[in-house]
């Protein structure tokens, strides 16, 4: 019986490999919004290092690469993948979606789980503090006592806000914005001193968006509260979840995910830990 099973598995595996390019894997059949196509969503614009040059179709950038890897494991070749864009906020509303899954640095949280489904995590991000050089020169440093005194800004619907409110507990009320671009703008305008982003985004903003940006510090990776897990976002009760999770688990186990991370995510060395 075991022999028969393994033969069957072998045969199935042998058949599946060459036909993967032409037909969907059983697991995703009938569960995507468009038969035979996998519709993936990301942000508008999609930032570095998650997507290079705002062109996810090219597969360059950490999230773009992860997306195509997951698609392949699920049985969708590169040309069976379709991209759409949504705002960050739009996707975490309850309701039907126009994508099969969405990836734009969505942290898996309990509240969000109530209205959408997340896949198993594909990345762990430390939260980092971004300031401008003048602020650092004025005495801001990587410890909570100093951070409390700064004027904070955050994107209202992200996990950055709870970190600001509960961990930092700033002396003055933070200002809140709709998206990362606005927080960066407010920093440029000197209306806020500091913002919290996932470490890769913070590094990008400090190097490219702000002329004089500095990543002041990151929150210790060992504290579960301060580490964000990114997951692929799907409609609540999505039939695809099992399949997606299967793909991610497979990528994690065979080290492909780690390889993609190493390829696209810079080493975040030298960023002090906040005390």
């Amino acid at each position: 019986m075991f022999k028969t099973l393994s033969t069957v598995l072998l045969l199935t595996g042998a058949l599946a490999l060459p036909t993967a390019a032409f037909a969907q894997n059983e697991c995703a059949a009938g569960k995507t919004i468009e038969e035979g196509m996998l519709t993936i969503a990301t942000g508008n614009p999609a930032y570095y290092p998650w997507v290079i040059d705002d062109a996810p179709e090219a597969g360059k950038g950490f999230e773009a690469a992860v997306a195509y890897a997951v698609a392949e494991r699920m049985g969708f070749a590169n040309d069976a993948v379709k991209w759409v864009r949504t705002s960050f906020d739009e996707a975490i509303q309850p309701g039907a979606k126009n994508f099969d899954f969405n990836l734009q640095q969505y942290s898996i949280t309990e509240e969000r789980e109530k209205v959408v489904d997340f896949s198993n995590p594909y990345y762990s991000a430390a939260m980092a503090v971004l300031v401008r050089k003048p602020t650092m020169e004025a005495g801001a440093s990587a410890d909570l006592a100093s951070l409390k005194k700064l004027k904070w800004g955050a994107v209202a619907t992200t996990t950055a806000l709870p970190v600001v409110m509960r961990i930092i507990e700033p002396e003055s009320d933070p200002l809140l914005y709709d998206d990362t671009a606005n927080v960066a703008e407010a920093m440029k305008a000197g209306q806020i001193d500091a913002g919290i982003f996932d470490l890769p985004t913070a590094l990008y903003l400090s190097a490219v968006v702000l002329d004089d940006g500095v990543v002041l510090g990151q929150f210790a990776g060992d504290d579960a509260q301060k580490l964000d897990q990114f997951g692929l976002l799907m409609e609540d009760g999505s039939a695809l979840k099992e399949c997606v999770d299967g793909a991610i688990d497979s990528l994690t186990e065979d080290g492909t995910l780690a390889k993609i991370e190493a390829e696209w995510m810079q080493e975040a060395t030298g960023v002090p830990v906040i005390k």
Partner: peptide, 9 residues
């Protein structure tokens, strides 16, 4: 939109 936390926000 530009920061203040009023009722809409």
């Amino acid at each position: 939109f530009i920061g203040p936390v009023e009722i809409l926000r």
